[in-house]
Each structure stands twice: as C-alpha cells, then as structure tokens.
Amino acid sequence: MLTITELNEIRARVRQHLSVRRNGNEVRIIIGGGTAAIAAGSRQLMAAALEEIALHGTANVQVSQRELDVEADEHPAVVVAINGSEVLYKRCTAAELCALISRSVLTPAANAN
C-alpha cells in the first residue's frame, strides 16, 4: 500500500524531472550553440551545467541552447535568464558557469515557489 507521504515524495522527484517541459521556469541557462561554440568548448559547459543542476536537485531551472550573437573569439558564451531578464556572459568557463548556476538557483527571489 502506498501512503500519501510516499505519493508526495514521488511527485516532488518527478516534478524536478518534468520542469524541462514547463513554461516559465525562473532560471533559464542558455548555452551558446552552433559549430563555432562547440569548437570553443560549449559542450563542456553543458556537461558542467547539467552536473551542477543535478547537484542542487532543483526544479526551477531549464537549460537550453541557442545560437548567441557574439564575436568569433567570444565563444563559448552563456545567457543566464532570471525571471525573464537575460544577462550575457562571454568566454565563459565551466567553473564560472557552475558558480553562476549555484548563485541563481540559491537566490531566494529566483527560488520562490
């Protein structure tokens, strides 16, 4: 027999997994895509971002990719959007991105819900 507490535990766990399909997540990490970005290491940024998010186990972040409008030598770039307002970070490193994520994820304003 399943208890209501167990039901709610499953819900909390799956909600995090389903956040990928939700509109209006508070924090969106947009990693620059395209061939040049990949050559400059955007895939490593992606791996680091996913690991960092998994570490926090939060349900309010989304990671997507998009071609960002930066100069050739400014790859890899990342946009961090918190409640819709976007900030662009050029020549971003994995460590910087992880710090950004942990900061935005843990910011109470962004974490409300």
Partner: peptide, 10 residues
C-alpha cells in the same frame, strides 16, 4: 540523479 536537459516527446 542526473539532470536531463531535454525531452523529445513523440
């Protein structure tokens, strides 16, 4: 648990 960034719904 690993974080899956994209879901492809078919």
């Amino acid at each position: 648990m690993p974080y899956i960034r994209s879901h492809v719904l078919i």
